[in-house]
């Protein structure tokens, strides 16, 4: 079976906007705006949501936040704190790996 080759766009090279981020996480625009305003998503955002652009990292982070809020009824700040800790854990695990030490 042959299938055509599909070209993938690398987010970060093509930034995604508010609507696209909301659609890809199946949340509302308002959800995204609320989380940016709470400071848990897209730090250093300007006041106009129309010009916000999101990276790969923001997309993964938004999905994490949504899952935590959904699973534990967490508020945005608490979910943000947990995601910060998870990201820190990942960073430290990567450093362990870099030093040749596994985290397992």
């Amino acid at each position: 079976m042959t299938t055509e080759e599909l070209t993938a766009a690398l987010l970060d090279e093509v930034r995604i906007g508010l609507e696209e981020l909301a659609a890809s996480c199946t949340v509302s625009r308002e959800w995204v705006i609320e989380h940016v305003q709470a400071g848990v998503l897209l730090e250093r955002a300007g006041p106009d949501p129309g010009v916000w652009s999101f990276t790969s990292h923001d997309l993964i982070r938004a999905r994490h936040l949504y899952a935590l809020e959904h699973q534990f009824d967490a508020n945005p700040e608490l979910a943000g704190l947990v995601v910060d800790l998870v990201e820190e854990l990942e960073r430290l695990r990567a450093r362990l790996k870099r030093a040749g030490l596994s985290s397992d």
């Binding site: 987010l11 990292h57 990567a94």
Partner: peptide, 9 residues
């Protein structure tokens, strides 16, 4: 590409 980046199809 590097770890943690996202591709969109």
């Amino acid at each position: 590409v590097h770890e943690g980046q996202v591709l969109r199809l």
